[in-house]
Design a protein around this nucleic acid. Structure first.
Length: 196
DNA sequence: TAGGTGATCTTG
DNA sequence: AAGATCACCTAT
């Protein structure tokens, strides 16, 4: 069962980031459905979070999708090389999103390996935000797409017990000063597919 | 540990 | 119009 609109419109983006752990990211990659269990996420908030692209009401062509109703994909190119996959959350007018940082490949892994030939092991196929987009075939064309459609969506997975979910500060956001210390990264402690 | 890479945002 | 920056990855 795909996650529904109510899940995505939750106004508490930090809770959504934690609840996404254990669910399954699915992409229709030229007719083949690729799936991976979400094992690592980060929350970004449009309010009081200098690490967020849409912080403090910042509205540009890139951040426009942040302000729409939860349940859309926000995809952008980072460092000229890697795409990043985010889930827009909260209701219209509130700019929150969750970055998917790592997944565990579970379906059509062979196609993921074709998409990412430089990966030397299954473990290194999707254990990072840029890596998982390359493996799953997520590109800029997915930006703004509904997660309730047939191209990209998230399905219910197994429930991960709270004690099994690790928490830390977010990665790669030192420029955000004090906001870089927010404990908004979540991961499955038992997974071998969390990023380094 | 350093450099590649290009869209995005600011004028550093 | 140009320069800085950047939610990363790979190979030395």
């Amino acid at each position: 069962m795909p996650l529904n609109e109510t899940f995505y419109t939750n106004p508490d983006v930090v809770s959504v980031a934690r609840e996404l752990i254990g669910n399954v990211l699915c992409v229709n990659n030229e007719g083949t459905i690729l799936k991976g269990i979400i094992v690592e996420t980060e929350a970004y908030s449009g309010r009081d979070d200098k690490a967020c692209h849409a912080n403090n009401g910042k509205y540009t062509s890139r951040t426009a999708v942040f302000y729409r109703q939860g349940g859309l994909a926000y995809v952008y190119l980072c460092y000229g090389v890697h795409y990043m996959m985010n889930v827009v959350t909260n209701v219209e007018g509130h700019a929150d999103a969750v970055l998917i940082r790592a997944v565990e490949p579970i379906e059509n892994v062979d196609v993921m390996q074709q998409n990412r030939p430089q990966a030397r092991s299954v473990k290194s196929l999707t254990n990072g935000p840029g890596k998982l987009c390359q493996a799953l075939g997520i590109k800029y064309e997915h930006n703004g797409k509904s997660l309730l459609g047939n191209d990209i969506w998230i399905e219910n997975g197994s429930i991960i017990p709270m004690r099994q979910i690790g928490v830390s500060k977010r990665i790669g956001v030192e420029y955000a000063g004090e906001d870089a210390m927010k404990p908004w990264r979540f991961f499955d402690k038992k997974s071998n597919f969390v990023s380094k």
